[in-house]
Design a protein around this nucleic acid. Sequence first.
DNA 1: CTGCGTTGCGAACACTGTACGCACAGCGGA
DNA 2: TCCGCTGTGCGTACAGTGTTCGCAACGCAG
Lengths: 240, 240
Amino acid sequence: MAARTNPIPSVWARPQREPDQPALSRAGIVREAIAVLDAEGIEALSMRKLATRLNAGATSLYRHVATKDELMELAVDEVFGEIALPPAESPDWRAAATDAAGAFRATALRHPWLSAVLGQAGLAYLGPNLMAFGERMAVLFTSAGFPEPSRAIDAVIAYVVGMSTTEAAWLTTIARSGQSEVDFIARLMPAAQEAIAGLDLLPEAYAAAAAAPDPAALRDAKFAYGLDVVLDGLALRLPR
Amino acid sequence: MAARTNPIPSVWARPQREPDQPALSRAGIVREAIAVLDAEGIEALSMRKLATRLNAGATSLYRHVATKDELMELAVDEVFGEIALPPAESPDWRAAATDAAGAFRATALRHPWLSAVLGQAGLAYLGPNLMAFGERMAVLFTSAGFPEPSRAIDAVIAYVVGMSTTEAAWLTTIARSGQSEVDFIARLMPAAQEAIAGLDLLPEAYAAAAAAPDPAALRDAKFAYGLDVVLDGLALRLPR
DNA sequence: CTGCGTTGCGAACACTGTACGCACAGCGGA
DNA sequence: TCCGCTGTGCGTACAGTGTTCGCAACGCAG
């Protein structure tokens, strides 16, 4: 079809980059990567696919990003930037902490691949958005009067990460099945029944969960309950 | 080197499987997979490498395991079996819960790849060992008198998973660097300093963390603190 | 001894992340 | 106007990956 090996240097069809395509940039690559991750999941993101979506050659991305892992780090910090920061000053630390926790969870559920990446790389990323979030949390818990604010923060973050991770993984599994959450639960029940056969307490717990008409609301309530537990425990540590 | 294409059917060197090698079995495959995962990490496990370690052909494993993901599920449930179950009956629910949480964390740190897998697949595995653990937790919190035992369990498990996941990912990063934890922290500090430049509270928090002589003990204390927070919050929900 | 279901496995396929080196664009200086 | 330089794009290639397919050999039931 096309000329095989660079025949004569002065061909008519010069490369002549289309100027409408806004050229490659690190920010653009990260943005498109997040789009792919959100739409198709973490295992669907390949450098080649990402490149073709950007109208670029397969290996051109490496001019702007050292490695795929680095790209993932950038993507993670980018979505951390979506989390609404806790207010710098707030009369009600508890409401502010609840808001921050909810914002974190909402972001984790909006980008379910985040959990998979966090499981592999943790929170050691040092990205600016994550740092800004940490700073604001420190401000919040310090000005609330906690004697060990970093301990308090670590506790609530651990809870939020744990719950969000589990939830995101669950939602990912459902999404892969292509079914709705209620349908998925219904289809899963036989296997679950078999798995818990012979046990005493789990069967009725599972039956109750399977009978819920609105699993999403149930997850919301579960998250709120646990968060209240953590915040209650923290409140006990406030002086006086 | 070797005879190229099956020359004569009746060769002297019959396949004659070495009988000392205990043949392939699902349990043996899972065991060896866990050994590789523990020793070299999750991205070092490939079906080919695993097969050669078992003196088997690359694709023979697929007779006993449908897919690599299924193998990972089996490995996950296998290590869940290492967690000491909470006692069926205990006069002190708090001590029992603390033990169970510590056992979970210890297992997660002993097999750091677990966090990565949990991040991708969540706790929806339905494996027998995980189910047994859940059942015992239900027994523990129900007999302790909690009005909503499954909510209580979910809260403490979320905390433990979140903290252990973060910790395991951190340890994995360190292990990949080949350094000790203190050395790694020292090497990381310059980048961290830059990342938190311009912030108010984080710098001193980081400095304090970096100055700790025994980071592992600090992690232990952090985990215990947060767990106490959660259990305190739960205790408030016990009737009377 | 015959047939059959089970197990092992070599070859192959479609992909992956990424190193290398060439081609070219734009630009500062002569 | 030309030269060189630097930064960018990318075609090719390499060393892997998970998994499918079909063939060969085994152990056991009849």
